[in-house]
Design a protein around this nucleic acid. Structure first.
Lengths: 196, 196
DNA sequence: CATTATAAATAGCGTTGCTAGATTTTCTAA
DNA sequence: TTAGAAAATCTAGCAACGCTATTTATAATG
């Protein structure tokens, strides 16, 4: 019973090490992307950051795109939690405003992460059975807002999401001047606060 | 008077030829992008399509990105015209709906072009003095819709644009199922039809 | 300790955007 | 008409990219 127990502990340690390294890769990718942009997140650069040779990365991810996809999923996890927190802490009547603000705050404070989630065209399945739970959870937070009222909460949620994403994306790509952001959010919230 | 007239005609012809080739490059880029995606639009591939060597392309554009930027500007020109047409032909009371539909129709029918305009992060200046006129014109078409009513037509226009872009982008990247598109447009238009 | 299994590194392939330098074509002027 | 200048174009190659077959080093096993 001990001759098998030792190999188990070793195997477990190896697994832990693997996870640590995987996390390091994702973390390095995020950091570089946020500081220097996604084109600077090369496989060579990442292997340098974690002090391993390139092929090691391919033991963790299928391809460079796989790394970006992992970052994106981490992003969906985080935005989901941020939206949930905003929704639960908001005063009644200010819920829509709080969630909208949280969404845009997330996009503004981590533009490269937001870019990975939406703009880099990664092949993450969405509205089907293989959709990662992190994505479902994030979308569910938006759905909560329009659950009671109206006849088509799904469509309304989609429009709310589309509006927020549009603002975030056009701001991120410098189409919108950041100066009017407050006004924009105010008017946007009014549109969705009481959709007769 | 003739010794100078002849060189002029030659110079003019050369200029015409240059323009033709420039247009060929842009056209080939659009075609390939729409059929095979932007990653397949390589400088080698383009030089092949126009039957010239690679360096010739760099006599027309500063870089590969410069070619994509030219495609994007062509796209803004076209969407501007499409929106204007929709606005002018629409029945009174149906103007917002007509423009919204035209916008989404444009994005759906030329997804790669739309991607070049918005998703590929090209450095086209926007809200400053160097903004290309094609962009100003396109945005002006949206502004027309909310000119009379409300106190802040600019902000309202931005929100309308953001909403349309959000729908277009999330549909293009498979976040939204195309099935509910009609419903989405209907509800979206209602939100903006009478913003008290 | 010898052997086997596993983990990691080296080295290199094919492709990319881009460009210096050689070459050809075109125009100018004697 | 033709020699020389100017302009246009091509050839060939660089550095960097994603990715991988093969070799080498490390670790676990009997």
């Amino acid at each position: 019973m001990e001759t098998t127990a030792v190999p188990n502990r070793i195997a477990e340690r190896k697994l832990r090490d693997r996870e640590v390294r995987r996390a390091q890769i994702i973390s390095a990718a995020r950091r570089i992307a946020e500081l220097e942009g996604w084109p600077n997140v090369t496989v060579r650069r990442l292997s340098d950051e974690i002090s391993y040779s390139q092929p090691v990365l391919y033991g963790h991810f299928e391809s460079r795109e796989g790394i970006l996809a992992a970052v994106a999923i981490e992003g969906f996890q985080e935005i989901g939690l941020a939206l949930e927190k905003a929704r639960k802490r908001a005063k009644p009547g200010k819920i829509v405003e709080a969630v909208a603000t949280a969404y845009l705050e997330f996009a503004t404070s981590s533009p490269a992460l937001y870019e990975a989630m939406f703009s880099l065209s990664l092949s993450i399945p969405f509205a089907d059975a293989n959709t990662p739970p992190e994505l479902r959870f994030a979308f569910a937070q938006l759905m909560e807002l329009f659950q009671g009222q109206g006849s088509k909460p799904e469509v309304l949620t989609e429009l709310f999401w589309a509006g927020l994403h549009g603002i975030a994306d056009l701001t991120r790509t410098k189409r919108f001047p950041p100066s009017r952001q407050k006004e924009r959010v105010k008017m946007f919230v009014e549109l969705f606060a009481f959709p007769s």
